[in-house]
Design a binder for these strands. Structure first.
Lengths: 118, 118
DNA sequence: CTTGACCCTCACATTAGTGTTACAGTTTAG
DNA sequence: CTAAACTGTAACACTAATGTGAGGGTCAAG
């Protein structure tokens, strides 16, 4: 199939599909006119990429294990665990920061509202 | 004082102080040679700016109420409350997203580790 | 007078994926 | 044959604050 069809099926924009190729994680064949041709497995592949992107992983990280998880169960790919753990750590730091900011903001909102009552 | 001194006192880089000027939230006088001169109150002002930046507010937002909070108690400035509330909402959305991702990641880490035990 | 420590402006780089636009070739349906 | 719909590449835009570097004045001490 050509890029437009793959885009419609997967919901991923043509621009992004081209970008995935540029980043080396989704390489299509080419027709003699230069058009990209994707086979059926590309659909799954795009869904897989999307799934990992939604987990907050960068394309660079994804490219490190995509090849493996496309052929095996994820649990088989030893590259995945450290990346998950690193991402988890990062996210937990972000959560901490955001929660602190949240408390600060709530304090100040409360202070303002209280002051308004006087 | 000149920019280097203000930078040392406040811990904010010279680059950032110049940026604050560009954004209109910290305007110094100029010497005849073009050098920026800041008065003593600039120190407090920079600390205030830093405080709001650390709350996750953008310079644009800050510029909307900085003038007021520098002259009055924060609780007096009616522009502040809606900005805080909006930011709070935004942060709570981010927290939700991150927490979902975190749970997903933890699930997958657990699955991989479990599989490894077999 | 020179050296070094300041200061100036201007402007590109950073993150990261996607949107958008310009310009151009190809295919397909009418 | 032509217009519409597709495809191609290339390149800039975006967010936002800060880092960095080039190229060049200014000033104080020795």
């Amino acid at each position: 199939m050509k890029i437009g069809e793959l885009s419609k099926i997967t919901g991923v924009s043509i621009r992004s599909l081209r970008y995935y190729e540029e980043q080396g994680i989704l390489i299509p064949m080419r027709l003699s006119n230069g058009y990209r041709v994707y086979n059926e497995t590309a659909i799954d592949q795009v869904h897989t990429i999307k799934f990992y992107l939604d987990l907050g992983l960068s394309i660079e990280k994804i490219s490190g294990f995509l090849h493996c998880v496309l052929k095996n169960k994820e649990t088989f790919c030893k590259e995945v665990l450290p990346i998950y753990e690193q991402k988890l750590e990062e996210i937990e730091k972000q959560l901490e920061t955001l929660q602190m900011i949240r408390l600060n903001l709530m304090d100040r909102v409360a202070a303002i509202k209280e002051e308004g009552l006087k």
